[in-house]
Amino acid sequence: MRVIDVTGLRIGLDVPDAWIDPGFHPYFTAGAPEACVRLGAAELLQRSGGETYEMEERVTVWPDAVRMLYREDERIIGTLLRPDAPLPEIIAVAKDDAPAPFELMDAIKGSVYCLLQRRGVYVLHSASVILDGRVYAFSAPSGTGKTTHAALWRKVFGAEDFNGDQLAVIAGERPVTAHGLPWCGSSGIARAEALPLGGVFFLERGKENRAEPVDGLQKLALLAQRMVADHFTPGALGRTMNELAPTAQALPCARLTCTMEDAAARVAVAYARRAMRQEEGCA
């Protein structure tokens, strides 16, 4: 069985090789799995009760399991996570036997993130680049222009891509570090590395370019709410915020109102470098 290491969690992929997406290859590791992914029958998804939440997928939570149902025309129609099984397992139910490696990788993402969250690992929905040896993340709702802004940093400052859609942080880790993930939306940009996280910009589309610091509870709330995590079960958002509080305190964050022009990257990079100098001055 192939095993991947995702931010310190070893996951066994108990599926035929044809079901393993190449995006997982840089994460192959040795060692015993701490959780596993396997394929299962549709009956596993048929269960009543639980609390249901409507997101992009329909999520139902029971004390011992989490079910995620996708659109009926998807190649993977749903997953069932059993986080408290002796070996926590993610069971994916495919529409048919034809291998669908990319769809499997995508479908198990939410369940893997649930398992990571239990270990204090949170996934920030963001496009991210590397500049001056640090990762900078741009977080905003889909369609705001995260990818476009990352492209401006590449074009104007020669920044390198880190991940097109998300990165992981470990609550309380010092220095705050961006951990690469195999999942990257449709961008195809995913580096299997861990680098210092220089800062997070919360993007808003505007007619001018302006970066303003966000601090205190506002920073913590923005950061927590941009995490792809279980915020919806009772008390979950509060737990997330409390766990992320030390990370938020150590992480420069700014609200970036920006256009789609080069000047937006100049404003953001000037802000980032200023924040870095201040941090080094304090160290």
Binding site: E51, Y53, Q225, G238
Partner: peptide
């Protein structure tokens, strides 16, 4: 002291 949304209200 913070007033936090719960459940679907967060989503």
């Amino acid at each position: 002291q913070v007033l936090l949304p719960q459940g679907q209200a967060v989503i």
